[in-house]
Amino acid sequence: MMSFCQTPADLESFAWFSCYLTTANHFSFYWSFITVLLLVFITAPVALLFGFGGAVAKRSTIAPLRWFGKIYTNMVRGVPELIFFLFVPIALDQAFEYVRYKLLCEDSSAPVYQGNDFVVCAAAKLPLSTAEAWVHTTYNFSLAVLAFAIVFGAFAANVIDGALSAVPKNQLETASAYGLSKRQTFWRIHVPQMWGYALAGLSNLWLILIKATPLLFLLGIEDIVYWAGYLGKTKTSFFAYPHGDWRLWYFLALLVFYLAMTYGSEKIINRLSRRFAKGQATLGANEDKAVAT
């Protein structure tokens, strides 16, 4: 906060803007960009892990595990991901509270769905109603991360499963001819070669993940969409910095942010795919592979 910002009404336009753009609310707005980046960078490895687990489960020789993998990878087909984003966090939240309800409440015989309400005793509430605000925020954020990771994990499982099938059979046969066990073949031959095939699909998912982040708004997190809408609204003279309806400009800034993220990612992905193609006996090794987005 600059000292001359005490009386914004008398300021020239440049000074007015420099004050306007450094208000506490604007810093919350800038912070929400970091939230988005945080979400992306936490979700991506978790989703990759889920995806790898799902793909391995789908190819497992143990039937129940295989069924689970099949259900998980097929779950995202045919249903808009939006429904998952609305459904998964609430369902997870209620599941957690239900488990705590059975464990922590003295009288856990009453049904949790009482008419139109989901009722648990105070001790089972998650987070506790006495908890500080940041606990609530973190809890909501982790639910969002989990929802994103589950949905994108299912997408990643599809990609990794395809990539595992794409590794040439003779590679694996050669490995077993050399006397490698199944486990050794999988970890030393199959998985390292799989990444090259999975890269195009996974980088696609990365771009999609970036573009899915505004859905945080629907989960009730104060993200960039929320702040853009809030800050852009018409401010009357009751406010320190009155202005008209500027939401158009705030959303334009968001558009530019996402376009820049996409542009930067595409550059990095192109470089990565060139590196992965090195030493591969595929057509793509000799030409620049255009990454499908």
């Binding site: 573009k211 982040t213 852009g232 959303f251 558009l255 996402y258 376009l259």
Partner: peptide
């Protein structure tokens, strides 16, 4: 093509709505 594939549809909706209102 870059514009419409590079930005989230969600934000495009918001942006378009505000533009139409103005």
């Amino acid at each position: 093509i870059f514009f419409f594939r590079g930005s989230p549809l969600f934000i495009q909706f918001f942006f378009a709505y505000e533009a139409f209102v103005l």
